[in-house]
Design a protein around this nucleic acid. Structure first.
Lengths: 128, 128
DNA sequence: CGGGATCCTAACCGATACTG
DNA sequence: CAGTATCGGTTAGGATCCCG
C-alpha cells in the first residue's frame, strides 16, 4: 500500500523532500543504512537507542511504502529481517550527508574545541 | 526562553541537525529566507500557503529561540516585522540546498507518476 | 528475534476570535 | 499587518502484551 504523496507543483522542492524524509527517525535510519549498507532490525534499534521498537517499525514501514528502503524477510526461526536502501533511497544520500556534516561540525565545535561563539553555544543549548 | 537542545556527543550528527530543523515548516522557511535574504511575515505566509499564520509564528519563534533567524520589529502602525537568517542559520544552507536539489528532481520526474521506482531513479540520473 | 495489536496520554495543529 | 489566545479534534508516540 503506497503512501499518498502529493505534488508540490507550484511549490517548494523542500516540501517535496520533506514528504519523504520528515518523520522523527527517518533521516537517522537513512544515515545508518548509508553507512552500513545492510542492517537488521535489532541492529538499527541498537544504533538508534532512543527509538522504540514500535516507532522503528512504523518508520521503516513508511520508508518501505515510499520505496526508500527494501525489507528482506528470511523465513527462519527465530525471525530474521534486514533492510537495505533502494536506489531511490540512495539518491537521498546528498541530503543526509549534508545533515551529517552540519551536525558533525557543530558537535565537534561545541564539544571538543570549545571555542564556538556564544551564539552557537546558545543555539546548541550550552552555556557560553 | 530557550528551547532545550540536548547534545548528541556519543551520538548521531543527523540527530543534532534534526533538533534544529525538524518541524513542519522550518526547512521551508529556511529555504525562502536563503533565497530572499529578508522576508516579512506576510510575505512568508504567501510563499508557504499551506502554513497557517499561527503555525508560521510558532515555527519562527522556535527558529528565533534557536538563533537561526533574527526577527526585526519596527514600531510602526500598522505593525511591520521582518526576518533574516543569522550567520548560524546561514550555515544550514548546504542542508537546505541538498533538500532543494533533491526535491526539484523529484518534482520533475516522479510525482507526476504518483510513485517512485527504480526506473525513475535512473531517469533522475542516479546510478542503479 | 522481529515485529503487530491495544490502550492511553501528551503534543500537535487547525479554526476562530481578538488586538495594538 | 503581525501576530496571540483559546478551544477542541487529531495524531504521535510510550507502555505493555502478545505471537510465530
Amino acid at each position: 500500500m503506497q503512501r499518498h504523496i502529493y505534488a508540490c507543483q507550484d511549490g517548494c522542492p523542500v516540501q517535496s523532500t520533506l514528504q519523504i524524509i520528515s518523520g522523527k527517525w527517518k533521516a537517522v535510519i537513512l544515515y545508518h543504512l548509508l553507512k552500513n549498507d545492510t542492517c537488521r532490525f535489532g541492529e538499527l534499534q541498537r544504533k538508534i537507542e532512543d527509538c522504540s521498537s514500535r516507532m522503528l517499525a512504523l518508520q521503516l514501514n513508511e520508508l518501505e511504502k515510499d520505496n526508500v528502503v527494501k525489507k528482506n524477510v528470511y523465513s527462519v526461526m527465530p525471525p530474521k529481517t534486514d533492510y537495505t536502501l533502494t536506489e531511490f533511497g540512495k539518491s537521498l544520500a546528498p541530503v543526509v550527508e549534508a545533515m551529517e556534516k552540519w551536525g558533525d561540525h557543530y558537535n565537534q565545535t561545541i564539544v571538543k574545541e570549545g571555542h564556538a561563539n556564544a551564539e552557537d553555544c546558545r543555539a546548541l543549548g550550552y552555556e557560553s
